[in-house]
Amino acid sequence: MKDNPVDNETKKLLLVDDDPNLILLVQDYLEFQGYQVTTADNGRDALEILEHEVPDLIICDIMMPEMDGYELVKQVRQDSRISWIPVLFLSAKGQTTDRVKGLNTGADVYLVKPFEPEELVAQVESSLKQAQRLIDKSGGSVDGAQQGEKIHVPADVTLTRTETKVVQFVAQGLANREIAEKLNVSQRTVESHVSNMLNKTRLHNRTELARWAIQNRLAH
Rank of each mutant, 00 (worst) to 15 (best):
K101F: 01
W84A: 08
E66T: 11
N42Q: 05
V76K: 09
P5A: 11
G140Y: 05
Q33K: 13
Q147K: 14
Y35F: 10
V124H: 04
V54S: 11
D17S: 04
A107Y: 03
A155P: 02
G94Y: 03
L209M: 15
V26R: 06
Q33M: 03
T97F: 05
L24F: 13
L183G: 04
P117W: 02
A145E: 15
V16S: 09
V109N: 02
A46E: 03
T38G: 07
A213S: 12
A180E: 07
N42P: 04
L22A: 07
K2I: 10
K182C: 05
K113S: 00
P65W: 14
S83G: 05
R44P: 00
I82G: 02
L209F: 03
T160A: 08
K93C: 09
G69W: 09
S127M: 01
L50V: 02
D17W: 00
F115I: 02
E163C: 06
V153S: 04
L15Y: 06
I49L: 15
I82A: 04
D136C: 01
Q146K: 14
I214D: 07
V157E: 10
G139S: 12
T10R: 09
R206M: 09
D19Q: 12
A107Q: 02
T97E: 08
E9F: 06
S127T: 00
P86N: 01
N21K: 14
I151E: 10
E9I: 00
Y110T: 00
L134N: 13
I214M: 15
V100N: 00
G94D: 03
D156C: 07
H204W: 13
D98R: 03
T189I: 01
P20E: 11
G148K: 09
K11S: 08
I62M: 15
Q36K: 13
G144C: 09
Q27L: 00
V194W: 01
N199G: 08
R206N: 13
Y29Q: 01
S192A: 07
K11T: 05
K74D: 08
P65I: 07
H193W: 09
H204M: 13
L218K: 14
K93G: 08
I179T: 07
L22F: 06
Q75K: 14
D61K: 11
E51C: 05
N184Y: 03
I62K: 12
E118G: 00
L15T: 01
D108W: 07
D28Y: 15
Q95G: 12
S141G: 09
L218F: 08
P65Y: 14
K150Q: 12
Q78I: 06
S141D: 12
K2P: 02
D45W: 04
E71A: 12
N216D: 10
V26L: 10
K2S: 12
L111N: 00
G43L: 08
V100K: 02
Q172N: 06
T189C: 04
H220D: 13
C60L: 14
H220M: 10
L103E: 01
R202V: 03
P117F: 04
F115Y: 07
A171C: 05
R77P: 02
V121L: 05
T38K: 11
D61V: 12
A145F: 14
E149F: 15
K165I: 11
I151T: 14
Q33D: 07
Q168T: 07
S127E: 03
E66M: 12
A175Q: 11
K2V: 09
Y29M: 05
N205W: 13
I85Y: 06
G102S: 04
Y70G: 11
D56E: 12
M1W: 06
E208N: 10
S83D: 14
E178N: 08
L103M: 00
V73F: 04
G43V: 05
